[in-house]
Nucleic acid binder design. Structure first.
Lengths: 230, 230
DNA sequence: GCCAACAGGATTGTTGACAATCCATACTGC
DNA sequence: GCAGTATGGATTGTCAACAATCCTGTTGGC
């Protein structure tokens, strides 16, 4: 449940009609939603029964998910949801920072006034929800803001890369958002990004996006450390 | 033929023993080598016969390759090698630039004197081959230099991303290397990258790598334009 | 009591057959 | 002649059975 509406930059799968595609899409969203925790075993027959599909479909879906980095497989030993440690999560965020930086630069160069309005509107809602204390909504608006920037940038290939990277960090995403004092700081950082895009300053937009994600990395590290100490 | 030694940052596939993995590795290298040109149809039975493997193995290999972006599939219509146009090639190079920039920064921060020696040695060979007019060798040394930097950076996840991106650009790789006046300019750019890494200057290393790839993009565009005009 | 070999079950890998779909060609009615 | 439609081959998608492998708990020897 909780159909987190963050498909954002998904591939143009249009009218998928084959079982394998079906299995891929649903499994991916199940993993993304955290319904299948990291390390959990993915037994082909069980999944086939659960999704009411054939084993072959599950099989190729798992192969694709492995390539996405969401699933780990060993011959004759089966597949399990990939466990992503702190170091790897940091690396993924660095990649995201670099790629979203490029996207922000392009967004700054391509944004129409209408695009800017949309961004500011999301930003405004974020501020409202923040003062209302609804962190879950803030997190979703955050995702939609980033997604919107990607759409403006008009770099489909890079958008897909970022989407894939994002899918791997579900576990750590929640933690970082909830860190103490983080939301208000995050709000300022997003404001800086949008401002740069609004005035068409590509360099500044890229820089702002990168410092934003660098901050996410820092909070992730501090949260992970304090969790480990416990 | 021509076993281009650019596996560089490949995944740790260790002792693959299943047919599907076998099919994936060989098909990937076949596509990478250009032996199977872009747009070419990939019929499962034919490939199975050619590689002496079962159709199921080919099937899952194609699913994985699709996820890599090397292959395009449509239901009941089969798979073909993905055709990558100029716009997409540019986008891929931008992504590479961003990611390799990050890698270069890390390399600058982690490089040992021994690492620097290795880089300089490659650079030296490149200069020699360049004056000897052996562009093929220069291209291979180029790949090995980039690969070396990635190894020094010690960011396996990002290295894999870059490797995947690289695999998609085989077609355009040749052209850019052979552009008039490009090799000597490329040599200078690589020199700047290695210098920055040698003195541990992360900012400079990232900047140098990004301007390097920005130049590659520019030559790709000019080559593509002149080719289109013909 | 402990270590090694060994069944047994569970799960994946592989194979072959069949169904579904697409594509190109030939055909029909006008 | 031509538009639309049937038809057959080619190819992929799905299914069910079997083989190969791993893992666990058990047994036997010492």
């Amino acid at each position: 449940m909780s159909p987190t509406a963050q498909r954002a930059a998904a591939a143009p799968l249009e009218n998928r009609q084959t079982e394998a595609d079906d299995a891929y899409v649903t499994l991916r969203s199940i993993i993304r939603s955290g319904e299948l925790g990291p390390g959990e075993r993915l037994v082909e027959i069980d999944l086939a029964a659960r999704l009411a599909l054939g084993r072959a479909a599950i099989r190729t879906a798992l192969a694709r998910l492995e390539q996405d980095g969401l699933v780990e497989r060993a011959p004759y030993r089966g597949a399990r949801v990939r466990v992503i440690g702190e170091a790897e999560a940091v690396e993924i965020l660095e990649a995201r920072g670099a790629l979203e930086g490029v996207a922000s630069r392009h967004a700054a160069q391509h944004a129409t006034p209408k695009d800017v309005d949309a961004l500011r509107s999301i930003l405004k809602k974020m501020a409202q929800r923040h003062t209302a204390g609804d962190l879950h909504a803030v997190s979703e608006l955050n995702a939609s803001l980033h997604g919107r920037i990607l759409r403006i940038a008009n770099l489909p290939r890079i958008a897909k890369l970022i989407d894939d990277l994002n899918a791997q960090n579900v576990r750590h995403q929640f933690r970082t958002v909830l860190a103490a004092g983080r939301p208000s700081q995050s709000l300022r950082e997003h404001g800086a990004i949008v401002d740069a895009i609004a005035r068409g300053d590509g360099d500044a937009a890229e820089a702002a996006m990168r410092t934003h994600l660098a901050q996410v990395i820092r909070t992730l590290q501090s949260v992970a450390r304090s969790a480990a100490r416990r």
